[in-house]
Design a protein around this nucleic acid. Structure first.
Length: 491
RNA sequence: CGGGGCGUAGCGUAGCCCGGUUAUCGCGCCACAUUUGGGAUGUGGAGGUCGCAAGUUCGAAUCUUGCCGCCCCGACCA
């Protein structure tokens, strides 16, 4: 036997790591907390990135690129912002190395100390708003709808592959607007883009909501988020969109002249999703045999495995495959014909299951005689015999079906794991028995939120958008509340 | 930064308590042959600063001290 994966029920964390390492998504690196994204993992990220990029452009955004380094003084201009990020910044202090005069190898040249230290961006609001100041004078310069694809660094104490690494890849959108309403609309528009992407492309059902004060982005007026549920019952924040008000405009003195010739500060939003989404994908859909990928973002959608004895049969299969490969390509299906003779069919079956390839086609001499192939779907493990006539079309339909089925499965799981709790006792029992989201009343104070976190490790994931308004009593303090919020233990 | 675990070939490991031939086994790798419908088999072969450093000793993977690294759990966070 080849690669063994730890069972989910044995050790969920280990299962997660096994999948990522053994499916070839990523590796640990020589740098603590940083990972290597391997070609298969990066192909997955590219598919996600390309689709998001398309959606951003369809909603009027353009890409740009801002520096990796941020002058230290910039970070401290917005009070809440610096407070939020100061603890986890990598700092560049010198710009040159030298040979150790004492023979100790290469050392930092003490003479090459930077006048002003540079921060490796943990996020780019500051450098961007410093730049926007030079771009904006009039309402005619607005809105600015810019996104950048970049890496950022946050010096986390504890890291996990994809979910939290010291360096990660993401996109960050930074928009500037003439009115508050426009900035709020933008914030919500992007939240919808994220939710649509998660649900339709990643087959990942999400709850849209607003963060409580203590969970919101440092420097934001409001943070909107999409929250997803993982198979172990823990929640994962999968994307955030912030309404920044005039906080950064004020910090960087970005004013514009409006139609009435009055001077005002610019209104802003910022929003991002990261490679963390890959972690979400793994934990939402995969099983004890490996990854399960939604067809729409799978690097390989269909793999074809030939089964043959001798060159003659192989040649016959090659010819047949060549014919229907063209049909697949015409339909835009990403198909791979694995006729590598180093591995036997059984090995390939297991390998592509591990890698989460949605559909596998096996074809042998016997099949060709009957004008069929064996089609196996990754999500349900079902195998059926399918006619070679119209095969590409049949499989294209199947791919859609798989996309839908994965979503439905995740959605059912999520729906079964949203429960109401009306007493503290119920709340604790639900958390410890099945986890998931717990809908409960909360008195609206940060102190209560903190206390609940201390007692149970559960945090408020969000206040759902369009939340039902209903009178109730706080689960902990019994104080009056006008709506339920979603609690969960989270990553 | 606290608690736990680990470091021996590309990967996973035995040996360590109780120091003593050529460091064990499996997977993987290379060659050849037979194979190919669920992780093939045989034969032959290559591959090791036993995490690093110092010490004890005639002799250290094994004992002592120090250091480094990684993983898991927690606090912090996307």
């Amino acid at each position: 036997m080849g690669k063994e994966i730890t069972k989910r029920e044995t050790d969920y964390s280990q299962w997660y790591n096994d999948i990522i390492l053994k499916a070839g998504l990523a590796d640990y690196s020589a740098v603590r907390g940083c990972m290597v994204i391997k070609p298969y993992g990066f192909a997955l990220w590219e598919n996600m990135r390309d689709q998001l990029d398309k959606m951003f452009k369809e909603t009027g955004h353009q890409n740009a690129y801002f520096p990796l380094f941020i002058p230290k003084s910039f970070l401290s201009k917005e009070a809440a912002h610096v407070e939020g990020f100061a603890k986890e910044c990598a700092v560049v202090t010198h710009y040159r190395l030298m040979n150790d005069p004492d023979g100790g190898g290469i050392v930092v040249d003490p003479d090459a100390k930077l006048e002003e230290e540079l921060i490796v961006r943990p996020t780019s609001e500051t450098i961007i708003w410093n730049t926007y100041k030079t771009w904006i004078q009039s309402y005619r310069d607005l809105p600015i709808l810019v996104n950048q694809w970049a890496n950022v660094v946050r010096w986390e104490m504890r890291t996990r592959l994809f979910l939290r690494t010291t360096e990660f890849l993401w996109q960050e959108g930074h928009t500037a607007h003439a009115t508050s309403q426009e900035a709020i609309d933008e914030t919500k528009l992007i939240l919808d883009v994220y939710a649509t992407f998660a649900e339709e492309w990643m087959s990942l059902p999400v709850v849209k909501g607003v963060k409580s004060i203590s969970e919101r982005f440092a420097g934001a007026v409001d943070t909107y988020c999409i929250e997803a549920l993982m198979q172990d019952g823990k929640a994962l924040q999968s994307g955030t969109s912030h309404y920044l008000g005039q906080n950064f405009a004020k910090a960087f003195d970005v004013q514009f002249t409006d139609k009435e010739n009055k001077l005002d500060y610019v209104w802003a939003s910022s929003w991002g999703v990261s490679t963390r989404l890959i972690g979400a994908l793994v934990m939402a859909h995969s099983d004890d045999d490996g990854l399960v990928l939604p067809p729409k973002i799978a690097p390989i959608q269909v793999v074809i495995v030939p089964i043959y004895k001798g060159d003659e049969q192989k040649k016959m299969i090659d010819e047949k495959v060549k014919m229907f490969m063209e049909d697949f390509k015409a339909l835009g299906v990403k198909v791979k014909y694995d006729d590598n003779d180093n591995n036997r069919p059984g090995w390939k079956f297991a390998e592509y299951e591990l890698k989460g390839v949605p559909v596998r086609i096996a074809i042998g001499a016997r099949d060709i005689q009957n004008n069929v192939v064996e089609v196996a779907r990754r999500d349900t493990k079902e195998k059926t015999s399918v006619s070679i006539d119209g095969l590409a079309n049949t499989v294209a339909v199947l791919l859609n079906d798989i996309q839908q089925n994965i979503y439905t499965k995740a959605k059912n799981f999520r729906d079964e794991h949203i429960a109401k709790a009306d007493t503290w006792d119920e709340f604790e029992k639900l958390l410890d028995s099945k986890g998931g989201f717990i809908s409960a009343h909360w008195d609206g104070t940060a102190e209560t939120e903190e206390k609940i976190k201390e007692l149970t490790k559960a945090t408020i994931r969000c206040i759902p958008l369009n939340n039902l308004q209903e009178e109730g009593k706080c689960i902990l303090t019994g104080k009056p509340s006008k709506e339920r919020v979603l609690f969960a233990r989270a990553y």
